[in-house]
Design a protein around this nucleic acid. Structure first.
Lengths: 336, 336
DNA sequence: TTGTACGCGTTATCAA
DNA sequence: TTGATAACGCGTACAA
């Protein structure tokens, strides 16, 4: 590609100095209207665009935030990203996106790229592998590099930074209680996202409710790419499970599908509630009762917090926002 | 935030010149091993990271590609973005993401941000409003700014640039023929994405098949946020429609849901094929037969093309890739 | 082996 | 009203 037009070129072409061109284009009152018009015309004609490289060189700020998400396909992250993009645009920032693919290695690499690639701050949700292996040194290091970090959704207590999340354990507990209150005798927790902080906390909440209700707990763990149909159905019958709390949208759908295919009725025989209010659960038959995690709001708040931190608008202590969640009642649960 | 560490600071701290530090950190053989070690140690200790701002100033290249997509929630775009991110990382580039929200205004703004924000190239899929209003000046202008543009999925013939898409009309025609060959007598085309190039072409293909088979055509248009249940069902019965080709994943799901809720059987009474092979169609009951659009491949190829264009590795004439699509047969269509 | 000087594009300060 | 100059961070050709 040919080079882009610069101030220097314009100046030479118009036989004026660089600074005159710069001032004219920035509407400085120092420049006479006639010169200004002449310069502006030429700039437009040659399609001049000021380079942000040169401009940012002084401030060493890029008005760019790096975002690292573990996966883009789940509705939760897509929607959170949507919220971030909206907020970033609104506040005059741009977003650089990295997808860690749930991998620690990719997450580390992304962070390196981002800090050398000059972002003013980083917003991220921790990858599965990182949480499983408990390796968070690369996150702690960010502090040394003077790059503010905001964690959202999957947060860890051991990392000193701003955080945005929901009260996973409380919400899991409430959802479990609600299943019980609509008549379920034995509720199981089904998870397709093991080794994540959100999963840990949702388990805790579920266990707490089970304990309180003196209900024997049952946790079913699997991976999304191979849902264990046989094993799941066997468990369902042997343990007479009649309620499921699912860790995420896809898990909820997989569980529901399996149950229906086996001939059980939903919600008459078995009730299902899943985390994340997404398009899939909404359009499933029957429509799924879900926990609204305020995906978009989490994204917006995380981004706003990052920007506020960058611009020194926050107190020194780190923020730890917990967004309010609600249960959306649809057709996979019985009415009270 | 405090300032980041620079070469200058390190130089001052170590009582050497800036260039010595620079050379040492870049493993220049000019620098003695002892000095090099001393400098590297200090750099690590102070967490020095070279600023890409300064580095890129010479080349005026940022190794960053701007991506503009109309929406992030549909599986197609999420998956395409996934492919782009993978390819970008592989080739040492970064991605700046903008979401136009199907709006012309936002699309224009995004382009402005991107070209001033120094991306080396832009990869985009045109918004609905832009196509509806046929305002493409901002896209034509990109040429003047020397910013290479690659269009993917939603492409327009009138824009001179590299393009990556599928053969929408041919694939729609084939899908329609296939529905007919499995026994459908009257196939309708249902679209939730009017005013997009892909929709236009899918209509054309459908119309072509209808014409060839001397079948009366019927196009049903709606918007995703309010699917016209009553109207749709009335049409279904009055015109004895027994096959549907849907423009996209969500449309396919909405149509199928409506049909099933009305008591028809799928595929016995009515068959459905939809564009885009996504998680929703795969997990629906019944699973939906879909057209695999090679979402990820489109993303990868579009990004690779952009980079090759930037690095002058392509011939002067613009590329116009058409990726091969296939029909994935699942449970919403009858066997041949 | 190390240091000096310059250029990249922009803006701001100061001189003319 | 306009122009010259310095500064930002980095890499590099060239001088010491």
């Amino acid at each position: 590609m040919e080079q882009k037009v610069t101030l220097k070129e314009l100046a030479k072409q118009l036989n004026v100095s660089i600074s005159t061109v710069s001032k004219a284009l920035n509407d400085s009152p120092e420049i006479s209207p006639r010169t200004r018009e002449r310069i502006k015309e030429a700039a437009q004609l040659r399609h001049y665009i000021p380079s942000s490289l040169g401009r940012n060189l002084k401030s060493m700020q890029t008005r760019t935030i790096g975002v690292i998400i573990p996966d883009i396909l789940p509705h939760f992250f897509a929607k959170a990203l949507y919220g971030m993009e909206a907020k970033a645009t609104e506040m005059g920032y741009r977003l650089i996106i990295c997808i860690s693919n749930e991998s620690l290695k990719k997450e580390k690499e992304s962070i390196e790229t981002l800090i050398s690639g000059s972002v003013d701050g980083i917003v991220m949700s921790i990858s599965q592998e990182t949480q499983a292996k408990k390796q968070i040194q690369h996150l702690l290091d960010l502090k040394e590099y003077n790059v503010p970090l905001v964690l959202f959704d999957r947060v860890l207590a051991g990392i000193p930074c701003d955080k945005v999340s929901i009260n996973d354990s409380l919400q899991a507990e409430q959802a479990t209680m609600e299943l019980i209150s609509t008549g379920c005798r034995k509720v199981a927790y089904a998870t397709g996202i093991p080794f994540t902080s959100v999963d840990d906390q949702r388990r805790d909440g579920y266990m707490e409710a089970a304990k309180r209700q003196k209900m024997k707990n049952r946790i079913i763990e699997f991976t999304h790419d191979k849902f264990p149909h046989q094993k799941f159905l066997k468990l369902l019958q042997e343990e007479k499970i009649d309620g499921i709390l699912a860790s995420d949208e896809l898990s909820a759908v997989q569980v529901t599908k399996c149950i229906l295919n086996a001939g059980f009725r939903i919600p008459e025989d078995i009730s299902v509630i899943g985390f994340t209010n997404g398009v899939m659960g909404e359009n499933f038959r029957p429509s799924l009762s879900v926990i609204d995690q305020q995906e978009e709001e989490q994204g917006k708040l995380a981004l706003e917090t990052a920007i506020d931190r960058i611009e020194n608008k926050l107190p020194d202590e780190f923020m730890d926002y917990k967004l309010k969640t609600t249960i959306i009642h649809r057709d996979s649960t019985r009415k009270v």
